[in-house]
Design a protein around this nucleic acid. Structure first.
Lengths: 150, 150
DNA sequence: TGGATATCTTATTAAAATAGTCGGAATTTG
DNA sequence: CAAATTCCGACTATTTTAATAAGATATCCA
C-alpha cells in the first residue's frame, strides 16, 4: 500500500511549478536541485504529466515547464493517476477497466477494497495545487508569528 | 498503491475461518482449495497471523486453524497491518516509527499522505470479520429473494 | 550563425519486492 | 505405526522500482 517515488516526486514537482508560477518556464534542473530529485528521473515522470496535459513545455534555451492549467484545476488525484495508474488497492476495483475475478459475481472482500479506493480518491481529489499553496502560506505566517514571540 | 496478495489472501483466509467457526480446526488445505490459493504460500502468511494472535493453531492430524478471538474483535485493519506492515502511503507517515525526511520540519505533501493514511485506516478499522459475515448473509438472503421471483 | 541551454526519446541496469516453490522436521490422531 | 497436519528455513523466477546514460531535437541570444 505504498506510493512509489513516481507519485511522490510528481506531486512535489507539480507543487514546485505552482510555487514558481509567473516566473516563466521552470527548468527541470532547477526543480531537481530544489527538490533533491534526479534530473534524468524527473524527465521520465514529467513526460507523462505533459502527455496528460498537466504541464506544458517550452523547448530550447531558457525553456522549461509550466502548469497546464490553473492550480485550482489540478487535483493531487490527477497527478497520482497519471504517474501511478488508476487508484485501486486491487485490480478488481480499478477505477478503469476492473479485471473482476470470475470466481464469484459477488465478493465480500471486494466491497472492502471499493471502500478503500473511494476513500483514497476522495482525499486526493479534495486537494488541489491551489489548496497546497494556501496551506504552505498559512504555515509560513504561523511560523513567523511564533518566531516573533521567541 | 496496490495491496499485495499477502493482504488480499490473508483477509480471504481469515474470512474463510470465520465462515467455518464451530466446525473445529480448519486445515490450510481446505482453505487453499476453497479460496484457490497455494497451500505453501498460505502457510507463510498464516505464520504471521498466528504470531500476532489473530489465529490459533492445532497441530497434528485433524488439526488446523481457528480464529484467535471473536470475529467482532478482529478488524480487517489488524489483518492488513500484520501482513503488509503499518498502514502508510509513504514511509514518512508510517503508523509506527515514521522516518521523517530531515529536509523540512513541515512538509505540505506530508499532510496529504497523513490524510490518505487516516482515511485508509478508518475504512479498514471499521470492518470486522463479524460485519463481513453479516454482509455475506445479507447478500445471500437478497439473492434468494431475487431467485424466488424468477 | 554558432554555442549554450533545454527538452525529448529510447535503451540499459542494479537492487528490491513479489509471489511463490521445495524439502523436511515436529506433532497429533486413530 | 501411518496418515494428516502444522512448522520452519532456504531457494527462485518474475516483476517493479528507481535510476542512469547517450544522443537527437529545438530555441534563445550574442
Amino acid at each position: 500500500m505504498k506510493l512509489s517515488t513516481k507519485g511522490r516526486y510528481g506531486v512535489r514537482a507539480m507543487f514546485d511549478l505552482a510555487q514558481h508560477m509567473g516566473e516563466g518556464p521552470v527548468s527541470l534542473k532547477s526543480i531537481s536541485e530544489r527538490q533533491g530529485i534526479s534530473e534524468h528521473y524527473l524527465e521520465q515522470l514529467i513526460a507523462g504529466l505533459r502527455k496528460a496535459g498537466l504541464v506544458k513545455s517550452v523547448r530550447g534555451a531558457q525553456g522549461g515547464y509550466l502548469l497546464g492549467r490553473e492550480p485550482d484545476k489540478i487535483k493531487v488525484g490527477d497527478i497520482i493517476r497519471v504517474l501511478e495508474g488508476p487508484i485501486a488497492p486491487t485490480e478488481c476495483v480499478s477505477e478503469e477497466d476492473p479485471e473482476c475475478c470470475t470466481k464469484s459475481e459477488y465478493c465480500v472482500t471486494r466491497t472492502i477494497w471499493e471502500k478503500v479506493r473511494d476513500s483514497i480518491a476522495e482525499v486526493l481529489d479534495s486537494i488541489t495545487l491551489e489548496t497546497m499553496l494556501e496551506d504552505a502560506q498559512k504555515f509560513e505566517s504561523e511560523r513567523s508569528l511564533y518566531m516573533y514571540y521567541i
